[in-house]
């Protein structure tokens, strides 16, 4: 058999063999937890971790948290797309770069992947993608020669940094092509000043337990900081703090936000039944017997005003 036919027969295996190591796009220091995750997976596989960093300042940190080789490139995602990674991780906000690169490499991609694992015998990448806003997950195995995932650093542990780790900064001559998306300057734009409470992703809800206007002002500050809508129970409406359309309750609005912060709301049945579809509830109330505290994921017994004052300084 001549060599051409042999390499043709082996073509698929050979192309698979070209894809090697775990590569991570690190456009900013915020994506360093991805390198830690790559290190964890590389240790079980016995392969190298390459980090592509957006600025040379991050190179040492990337090595400390687990990179063996560091490449500096202005647009890490595009540099990575020009390599042959067996596994490639992008931060979740660069999902479109990851998707383009995956299509280019005929690779499968899990976006916003959770609980990543690698099957050591088949080298498939296993992960979960949240659906219906995180109600549950679809599990998937990526089986192509190159395997891509985007990860949210917020859901990864803070990586262990060892300043004594050794790694190498590999120079490159890569020049990124000009971005196709032409930036035309800042936009004076707010997506929607008001959204109905049922559709809000985050709600800060106020009640009589906030005591006075000063307490309400603190709650407003928290809402602004979190990008949340303001709501409340019937008692807040009676005090004139919120309007009729902001009342949460089965006689007002039933809500299903990702985050619901109840401040000084006692939590009668009419209110609590309207928040059963909220994904995460935090409640603050001075009375340890307030029913709201038993339906919250995290409950705080304390004066809402005092807790808020401390919380706002911590979030500043």
């Amino acid at each position: 058999m001549d060599m051409d036919a042999l390499s043709h027969l082996m073509g698929e295996d050979l192309s698979a063999a070209n894809y090697a190591d775990i590569w991570v796009a690190v456009p900013s220091a915020g994506a360093l937890p991805l390198v830690g995750e790559a290190r964890r997976l590389a240790d079980s596989l016995g392969c190298y971790v390459h980090a592509v960093v957006g600025s040379a300042d991050t190179a040492d940190q990337a090595i400390a948290v687990g990179a063996d080789r560091v490449h500096v490139a202005a647009v890490p995602g595009l540099f990575l797309a020009a390599q042959t990674p067996e596994f490639a991780f992008y931060p979740v906000d660069r999902w479109h770069q990851a998707a383009r690169a995956a299509q280019q490499h005929k690779a499968g991609l899990i976006t916003d992947a959770r609980s990543l694992q690698i099957d050591e015998s088949t080298r498939a990448l296993l992960g979960s993608h949240p659906v219906y806003g995180g109600e549950y997950f679809v599990d998937v195995a990526v089986t192509s020669p190159a395997k891509f995932a985007t990860l949210d650093p917020r859901f990864l542990p803070e990586p262990y940094a060892d300043p004594g780790r050794s790694g190498e900064v590999v120079p490159n001559e890569y020049v990124a092509p000009p971005p196709p998306l032409q930036d035309r300057g800042p936009a004076d734009f707010a997506p929607q000043a008001w959204r109905p409470l049922q559709k809000a992703r985050r709600i800060v809800a106020v009640g009589r337990g906030l005591k006075d206007e000063a307490g309400l002002a603190l709650a407003r500050q928290l809402a602004e900081k979190l990008g949340a809508e303001l709501g409340g129970d019937r008692s807040a409406q009676d005090l004139g703090w919120i309007g009729e359309d902001q009342v949460v309750g089965v006689t007002g609005q039933e809500v299903a936000p990702d985050l619901y912060v109840a401040l000084g709301i006692r939590g009668d049945t009419i209110h609590n039944a309207a928040i059963v579809r909220a994904k995460h509830v935090i409640a603050v109330h001075a009375n340890p017997a307030a029913p709201i505290l038993d339906v919250a994921d995290e409950a705080v017994v304390g004066e809402p005003q005092e807790v808020l004052t401390q919380l706002l300084t911590r979030l500043a």
């Binding site: 549950y136 997950f137 998937v140 195995a141 994921d297 705080v300």
Partner: peptide
């Protein structure tokens, strides 16, 4: 290039966890 492997579910919520200590933190 991918194989579906079913569904998984987040842990059941344990409600009413009271925070103490450094509450604001």
């Amino acid at each position: 290039l991918t194989e579906p492997r079913g569904q998984s579910f987040p842990a059941e919520r344990e409600l009413g966890r009271r925070l103490d200590g450094d509450i604001a933190g």
